[in-house]
Every structure is written in C-alpha cells, then in structure tokens.
Design a protein around this nucleic acid. Sequence first.
DNA 1: TAGCCTCTCTAAACCGGTTCAGTTTGGGTC
DNA 2: GACCCAAACTGAACCGGTTTAGAGAGGCTA
Lengths: 355, 355
Amino acid sequence: MNIPANLPASTAMKSTSPKVTIEVVARQAGVSKGLVSFALNNRPGVSPETRVRILQVAKDLGWKPSLRARSLSTQRSYALGLVIARNPDVLASDPFFPSFIAGVESILAPEGRALVLSVVPDEETELRTYRSLVADGRVDGVFVTDLRLNDARIPLLAELGLPAVTLGRPDGPSPFPAVTVDDTPGVMASVAHLATLGHRRIAHVAGSSTLLHGLRRREAFTAALREAGLPEGQTVETDFSVAAGSDATRRLLTQDRPPTAIVYANDPMAIAGLGMAHELGVRVPDELSITGYDDIDFCRYVYPPLTTVSAAPMVWGRSAASTLLALMESGSADDVDLPAARLVVRGSTAPPSGK
Amino acid sequence: MNIPANLPASTAMKSTSPKVTIEVVARQAGVSKGLVSFALNNRPGVSPETRVRILQVAKDLGWKPSLRARSLSTQRSYALGLVIARNPDVLASDPFFPSFIAGVESILAPEGRALVLSVVPDEETELRTYRSLVADGRVDGVFVTDLRLNDARIPLLAELGLPAVTLGRPDGPSPFPAVTVDDTPGVMASVAHLATLGHRRIAHVAGSSTLLHGLRRREAFTAALREAGLPEGQTVETDFSVAAGSDATRRLLTQDRPPTAIVYANDPMAIAGLGMAHELGVRVPDELSITGYDDIDFCRYVYPPLTTVSAAPMVWGRSAASTLLALMESGSADDVDLPAARLVVRGSTAPPSGK
DNA sequence: TAGCCTCTCTAAACCGGTTCAGTTTGGGTC
DNA sequence: GACCCAAACTGAACCGGTTTAGAGAGGCTA
C-alpha cells in the first residue's frame, strides 16, 4: 500500500520553475538580496559591472519582483482609484466614463499601474468607499470626477492624505491639481450660434446644479444670452438623465409661447428632447432648434443630426492620469487647462420659423 | 540656537495613534500574534472567552488587519478583475458595462473586494493584460465578457489557473462556470411579433459574428424566420457600432425591394437605423418596423419609442459576481441560467403598409 | 605608515500578517 | 497515580521585497 515513492520525481520535474524570488537571483548572482534590490531600483551604491551582472541574472531567471511583497514594504499599492457615484440610469446613458477610463488606462497600463473602480449608489457610500480604499491601501491616488458644489470629498481626501486630481476646478479651496476643460466657450458658442440664426426665445435644459459642470453650463447659458442682448431665457433643472430631459422638453414645448430653441446640458437629454419634439409634432429644426453637449457617438446618427459641443473625454483621461502620476512622483503637479470644447454644427439647428 | 527640546512632547501627542498592528493587539490582549490571527479568522483552537476578549481589544484599538500584509502571506489580493477589449466607440455607446459593473460592485463592496478594471484596445493586449494581472497577483479571479468564437482566453486562463466566470456559455469546452442569459427567445419573439403583424420581408442587422452573442442572435433570427414560415431574410453583419448600424440601414433601405422590418442586434444600431430611416424619408413604423436589443434607456425616449428586448445587465453583474465568489470560495460553482430577456413592444413596430 | 574617506557590499531588521510544530494545561480513564 | 489525549496557546518561520547600520577594501593625503 505504498503511496508512490517516486513522487519526488514529479516534484523534481517541476523544479524547472520553482518560484524565483529575489533570494534566488541574489544567490545566483553571488550577491546579497539587498544589492539586488538596489540594482533593480537603480539606486547608487552598486558598481556598474555588478549591476549589469545582477540584471542579467534576473533576466535569465525571468524574475519579476513580487508586487505584493513590494507593496508591503513600500506601503504603496501601485494602483489608482476611481469612485463613481451616479444614478445607474444616468451612468448608463452617458458615455463619458467609458471613454475617460480608456484614456486613463492608456497611461496607466504602460506604467504597470492598475485602476481600481468603484461604482456606488450615493454620496454617503462614496465617502465611505474613499475611506476604505485608503484604509486598505488599495490605491495610491484617486480621480475626483463629477465635482459638486462645496464638495465633501476635497476635505476628506486632504485629511486622508490621499493624492488626488480633480476633473475641473472645485469651487472652494483645494490642495489638489485640477485638470480642466472649460465648459463656458462651448455653451457660449451654442447660444451665439442660435442667436445668429435669429432665435430670441432660447431655453436651457440644465443638469443638476449641485454638480459643478451643471452649474457652470447654466451660468454660461445665462451669460451668453445677456451678451447676445437677448431676454432672459427659461431654464429647467434636471438630473442629467434621459427621462428628465424628455420631461423638461415636454414642459417647455407645451407652454403658450414655447422657445424656438433649446440648449441642453448634455447629449442624452438632447436626444430625448428630439424624441419628445417628434412626439409632440414639433419639427426639428424647422420649428425648434436643439443643441446638445458632449458630442457622443449617437449625435451624428439621430435625425436630424445633433448640433453639439465636442468634448474629448479620452484626452481628459490621459491628462488626468499623467497629472496624478506626476503628483505622486514629485509631490506636486500643475493644473492643466485642456483646450475648450468646440461647437459642432449639424442639422438640428436652423433659423426659427416665420412666426 | 536650541532646536525645541520639547519636540518629544509633540511626538508624545501623536502617541494616540501609532499604527496599531496585530502585534499591538496581541500584547494588549496578553496573547500571541498567532492567536489573534486565529481569533480574527474564526478558526478553531481559541477558547470562547479568549476569542471574545481578543476581538474586544481589537475593536477598542480600532484594529483593521493590513490588506497588504495579508495579501503577502495568503498570496491573494481580494480583488477581482474585468478586462474589456472593445473599440472605444462601441464601448462608449453601449451602456452594458456601466450597468454590469454597478451590479458587480453591489456584490463585491460588502465583501470587501475591489474591482480592477482594464480597458484595452485589442485582443493581443487583452491576453497580455490577463497575464500581467496574474503575474502581479492583482486579482484572484476574473470576469470574461464578450465571448468570442473559439475564445483564446479560456485556455489561457485555464493555463494560468485563474478562477473565472464566463458571461454566456463558450462554444468550446470550458472549465469555468457560465452565467448565461439566453439570447434566442428574445430574438425569436421579435421576429414572431413582426410576423404576426404581417411582415414578410424582415432583415437583420447583425453584430460581429466573431462575438458569440452576435452569432447567436443571428442564428436565432434565421431560425425564427424558418419557424414563422417566412423566406430567408437579409442579414448585414456589422461591428455593433452606431456608425455601422447606420450604414447597414442605408444599404438595406436603398435597395429595390427594401425590407418592411429590421431586427437589430443591439439598441444603439437600432437607434442609428431609426435616424437613417428618417433621413431617407422612410416613416417608422408606417413604412418600416424596427426592433432593437438590450432596452437601453434611450429606447423609451426616441421617437417612436423602440420595440426591443429587455436585458438586465445589472442582474447579470450581480449573478456573475456571486458565482465568481462562490467559485473561489469552494473551488467550484454551478452554471447559472438567468431568465431570458423579454420582448418589450413599443411604437417602432406596426403592420406593414399596404404596398 | 597611520589615518581617513569613499565606494561596494552584506547582514539583519522590517513591513504585518498567516501558519505550523510543539509546549502547556486540564480532564478523563484505568 | 500513571498515562493519554484534546484543547488552548506560544514561538518562530514564512511570504518577498526594502532599508539601514556597518564591515571591508582600496586609494589618497600627510
């Protein structure tokens, strides 16, 4: 009843790949662990020849330092975090994040950094999530998106000592670098475009004004009207969702003197508005002009194609990632101002009808 | 020129929060590190009273075991991975992932697990990414989405020994549990619905047939036509993108005898198709009926609202996450078949016009 | 030739947990 | 009272890196 006595043989077979650690490399190169570590992280104190020899041995053995071990001793995780607190509906219809993340990844991957993503239902959970990301040491830094008025995350992250980059400039003081795309010119251009076409009753379907970009776009809208010498326009505040965009549009169009043009704070709402106009028998662009914001893929393919403001979330992602890495590297990083989004004129805008 | 001699005092002030490790807890509770570890992971070999005392001390001291240290000794990361290889355009217009991820998170977060996300541009990078996630020990398991014909990821993950869950059943053998939503009934129902309305020339704008769900929907379409006793229908293969959906629609509608109904393999393409129909002056649903697949938020708000098949990516995410956790826990998990997606009839389908 | 400095390198501690071999304690059996 | 055994617990090794104090060797100065 002998258990195979030759078991060791099979074990021996595996001896081609016993885990190769820094210890093995050191022994093989005839030096100490510490020196291998020095050579790897090219720090001074290793003679050139020895350094070359160590690196060669490491390469020959196919050694990759263990991220886990390194994490424990350096107290860093080599990962960055993104916490998204959004109503699932809004999140789903807004292509901002997929593109933004693709941009972020394009920078992180070559650096061997990973992205830890959290999608949470509300702000309270959001703050808890940041705390636990830090407590667990899951990430070395985070992206702060969807800035809010008087954002509680700024002081929290400052308190936690977690490096961060904000997308856009917060309204209050912030110790973190901001990577910003100015919303104003795009909205201004939209309004100016409509004014030039001859519109005088222009309404705005705004996003949530607790969100800074919602607020900024709204302010830009108001300012643009003033600048164009037009009367104050109607503004309906929403939560940026498709459903809200649709409702707001119905509300605007079923009034006595409906607007001849509507400026939407994002594309999904504009597309929903387009649908609602159709439903109400209001022809676009003949009886109603519509502009969106973001230039999501759909814009080109709805009918009529949507005049909108072209943002570049992927570029934003790249820039934010670079900035965050720089911040962690050197302890400080400059604000970055990306080129403002530009108006793209398509078929959904035209001069107002005679009336 | 004395440097403040009372510096130690300020140090003393900080003594309220010197990092509390398992060592500190052990000393405070008057036991060894090992025993604290046992108590924490409630394993046998600790007397009830001692266990309670240890846990109490841990709580009083606010001790949270270090994820990093634990990772090093257990060789696990307590994180799961999701690698998405998609053309950025397709990714951006498809709300599947945001919803799916929200579902996944709702399971992972309470378990203290994190999600590591990678978005990569192509399949080659995708495979490399899986390898490096494993090499770095970033994740303990992964989700495999967008299954392809003869998917190279299955053997790779098997070889790497990384636990995985596939979304849908692969075409070849797979050692991994599959969480599946059957595409067939939804497509069948769409076709049956159109046939019942009286349509006889029904076309299909299919997704990429290298993607299993693209292929399955296409097969279901063909089978459904046969079952309804209708002649073979036209099928145009695309890459699931909005642009391709638009092109395919133009191709179909500008023929001599265009179809009276089009079944799209996903909603974004259907919405693009709707736009193209408008552009070509083809009235929907009077002259052309349209169905989509997924029931994304937009469907309800375009005009006419889109008849589509309602999938539930959030539920899928929850189920996939649970299955993956179970697999890692117990070493095996059963396949899960989620309720098939159901047809939702809205305004984009109607009996064909007289002609 | 002693003294000193610099450069290269080693040994050991450290990060903070888990795990396992082995010791102590107490109760039960004969 | 001797023996055995299980339960409770300890101490040390271990995971695989980084970091630091200090040892040795060699060159330069006086």
